[in-house]
Design a protein around this nucleic acid. Structure first.
Lengths: 147, 147
DNA sequence: TATTGTTATACTCTATAACTATA
DNA sequence: TATAGTTATAGAGTATAACAATA
């Protein structure tokens, strides 16, 4: 189908399509991986920021506290993450379990395969550029509250 | 929060975040706009491809027939799109109504404002580059069926 | 046999609102 | 007052599986 000038000028349209590409591809071998790309992303964030709290995790994922909570529940149920006492009595500190530490590298490899498939038509240089530009998007000046 | 090498290397993570930025911003003034960015995108596609059928629309949006159907229902209920007889008896031809034609430009302007807000930290050149690179993503070599 | 539209159903993800405990 | 976690509830968006009509 034809994409007119309006659509080509809207970054949001391209982002929307790209997002669905993740869904239909990387999320497909569900049973094998057992975690969605977004869930694995959360796992990686916790590994790279040990002891972080749920609210900070939510911010990093652009989701609110309540959604972050559900996400952590799933990871905890699967024995990949545990909640430990945090810096004060309100706060949880999130840590990977031994099982989580062991499994992350394997799952990251699998995710990288589908990520590479999605970017197959781009050079390594273009992938770097794309990633850098996406990172520069938002948060939006106006309100930006995810809560 | 820290983004380790794994995450920086995964385009999918950035896309996921960018997608949520659209949600929390552009979708916010709901009552005023009355269409989500994705719905407006569909409207634009129909305008730019008059007489297209639902399945083609779905492909352009990377969603399947059933989801495309729901989308068209919403647009039709609001009097923006109509189904006319298509090229054969199985097929609908999608056309904007007079009201749809009149309203699209206004809504596109509104969407462009939030799109601009999302890309506020990028130069015009960077926006073009980003858009072009996103367009080069997928469809995935392997299966790619959205149905 | 394959394709289009359609319907019914279910699932995932996220949001909102309210509550509790703590700061 | 503000913040972290929690819970219940609701909504949007998409998917799957079936069916009828048509090609």
């Amino acid at each position: 189908m034809k994409q007119g000038a309006d659509l080509r000028g809207l970054v949001g349209y391209q982002v929307q399509r790209a997002h669905l590409l993740i869904d239909t591809d990387a999320r497909a071998p569900k049973a094998a991986r057992a975690l969605s790309p977004a869930q694995l992303t959360a796992l990686i964030l916790i590994r790279d920021n040990p002891g972080c709290d749920q609210t900070a995790l939510g911010r990093a994922l652009s989701i609110n506290r309540s959604s972050a909570m559900k996400l952590v529940n799933i990871l905890a149920e699967r024995g990949l993450v545990e909640r430990r006492p945090g810096r004060d009595l309100r706060t949880n500190a999130l840590w990977l379990t031994a099982e989580g530490e062991a499994k992350v590298p394997v799952m990251v490899d699998a995710l990288r395969v589908s990520d590479a498939r999605m970017t197959a038509r781009l050079s390594a240089e273009e992938v770097r550029t794309l990633s850098a530009l996406l990172r520069k998007l938002g948060p939006v000046p106006r309100a930006a509250s995810a809560d």
